[in-house]
Design a protein around this nucleic acid. Structure first.
Lengths: 204, 204
DNA sequence: GGATACTTGAAACGCGCGTTTCAAGTATGG
DNA sequence: CCATACTTGAAACGCGCGTTTCAAGTATCC
């Protein structure tokens, strides 16, 4: 007939929107300022994305895609010790260039907690995906599956806790030092779990 | 003259507002629904609190007061091992009755990150207060001050990470198990730090 | 080159927001 | 008891929001 839909324009707008949201947050997002920053109009955003809610969904989806790209680049081989996996994770994600994306996801976690209906299953998936990745990545042979999940839960909790602190305070010196203390603890724990001599009971 | 200001009414409204915000979140808070839930009018909220922003500030302040009351009840003596301090903290705060307040503060952290001007220094203080408490509570004699801060940073990160997970997934069984694994790691670390025999290097 | 469908702009609509205005209601000090 | 100041209610204001309407602009296929 006459003309093919301009998919590239949509992708360009979406990418710019993700950048904007990383800088300005998702909570107070409104179309008019966003449109102005993207040098377009609210009308156009709605034309390309249908509604604001749909746009938000796509922004989050695109953000997750960036996150997963980063994770894929980690190339974590299956037999690294947990401390190595955690160190690589930390090195990668504490990069100032990646912090805004991380901050965005903490924001989305919160929004999802406040309005689970708008982001169904988001919070649960956010943990479950990392669990899956870390369970597979750093399992100790002696661990049962539940132990492995518990251990992975520790890794995730510490990682996210350090991230929160870094995002909030920016006190990189203190936190980097804390991460090293923590990684040494991890090595100690693995040592204790694999050496048969010690009394090692992790249950209450 | 004629009548004394009703301070009790204000306090009552504020307490009810904190409860409301714990249940409904602070992000989308607006006066009309809040007033309806409190069986009063927007007009009255503004009369008692001046403006919505002032009200929000007072809600957060009151929430912090509740938080500190809980902390004061912990009665952490100075010579408990870190794992005991952490266990008590976790037991106290993972109580379902206290989770909403914790969730509220994670929400405020995020708001403060998005708009530092509205909540000046909030995020930094949130970490610094816990740091101070934990530094004093579970210092090891062999630690320098920087080491103590780093160690306390680990405790806070893990605590907050576990909290985030619990609030998001509610998977108490998995997380309680993870906490036990983590506490055992803490004990191991303290053991390693105090026994002179082992090679113990926590720097990169 | 003109019909066709994609793309964009300007302006307005209805809505809920925080806030203000104005007036009535109410308890208390003199 | 009544003047005074505290308290509350009803209604409206202006504003920014997401969205819609209507029309113009633009690239492409026949």
């Amino acid at each position: 007939m006459s003309r093919t839909p301009d998919e590239a324009r949509r992708a360009e707008l979406l990418d710019a929107a993700v950048d904007y949201v990383c800088r300005h947050g998702l909570t107070g997002l409104s179309l008019r300022p966003l449109a102005k920053a993207l040098e377009t109009s609210p009308r156009n955003l709605l034309y390309h994305f249908g509604s604001k809610d749909d746009l938000v969904v796509e922004i989050i989806r695109r953000g997750r895609a960036r996150q997963q790209t980063t994770m894929a680049n980690l190339k974590l081989s299956g037999d690294l010790p947990p401390s190595q996996v955690s160190r690589i994770l930390w090195r990668q994600w504490s990069d100032p260039k990646r912090l805004p994306l991380m901050r965005l996801f903490f924001e989305v976690y919160n929004l999802a907690l406040a309005e689970p209906a708008r982001f169904p299953g988001f919070s649960e998936r956010a943990v479950e995906e990392w669990l899956g990745a870390l369970e597979g990545c750093s399992t100790l042979p002696s661990y049962s599956r539940a132990d492995a999940r518990a251990f992975a839960t520790v890794l995730i909790a510490a990682f996210r806790g350090f991230m929160l602190d870094l995002i909030a305070t920016g006190d990189r010196a203190r936190i980097d030092r804390a991460v090293e203390v923590y990684l040494a603890m991890l090595d100690n724990a693995v040592l204790a779990a694999t050496s048969p001599g010690e009394d090692h009971d992790a249950t209450a």
